[in-house]
Write a protein that binds this DNA or RNA. Structure first.
Length: 202
DNA sequence: TAACCGATTAGCT
DNA sequence: GCTAATCGGTTAA
């Protein structure tokens, strides 16, 4: 896989992304990168940023066994169970101890599509990875992956689309801090979990 | 140990 | 567009 050291000091850069930067920056930089778990995955087309100290973030109420990876080193996975059903994947950013991360909300499926169709019980490619819960099921995201480094097995993160056109909008499904326009998407992608109503270009 | 709450989805109307 | 389903983590007692 491609591993690019960005800062020269911090070993936190992969696929041209420096994960020691803010969630807001990393969320945008992840758009257009290819993410796979055990060779199954696709191109990231939708992300959301969650920053330390904001009420909508899982790190807001402090360190717990569940959210511990959020307070760990950047470029590691944080997996949580949503609504008691869906396993969702985040990537930790900033320095260790901050509690910031980026939720991966949707992929354009590219590799391992038969496995995704089997796990999801669906054949429509738009039903495989469009939404954090669907993506988690298609890539077999599990709590065992929580805390694992994003640059090592079973994860793989590569550069795919160069200079993607990115749009931004309001985060989905949150009740706290809705004013933060921290959802990002690949402009015009048919694999978004939901459309961006007002087309705010980044 | 019991109650409450979702960073959602699927299946309706 | 609307709503039920679903269950681990958190909080309060």
């Amino acid at each position: 896989m491609s591993r690019t050291k960005v800062s020269g000091v911090l070993p936190h850069g992969w696929a041209g992304i420096d994960f020691s930067k803010s969630a807001l920056r990393v969320a945008q930089q992840l758009i257009g990168k290819q993410l796979t778990v055990s060779g199954v995955g696709g191109i990231i087309v939708e992300t959301e940023a969650y920053d330390e100290g904001e009420a909508a973030a899982h790190s807001y109420t402090g360190l717990t066994p569940r959210n511990a990876p959020l307070f760990g080193p950047p470029a590691h996975a944080y997996v949580y169970l949503s609504y008691g059903i869906h396993w969702c994947l985040n990537i930790v950013c900033r320095e260790a101890g901050h509690g910031a991360g980026v939720l991966i909300r949707a992929l354009e499926p590219t590799t391992g599509i038969p496995a995704m169709m089997r796990r999801r019980g669906a054949s429509d490619p738009h039903m495989l990875c469009s939404g954090p819960g669907r993506l988690g099921q298609a890539l077999a995201v599990s709590p065992q992956l929580s805390g694992k480094a994003i640059d090592s097995s079973p994860f793989e993160l590569k550069t795919s689309i160069t200079a993607p056109s990115i749009v931004r909008g309001r985060r989905i499904g949150i009740t706290k801090a809705p004013e933060r326009i921290w959802r990002f998407g690949l402009r015009g992608s048919p694999f978004l979990s939901r459309p961006f109503p007002t087309l705010m270009k980044v």
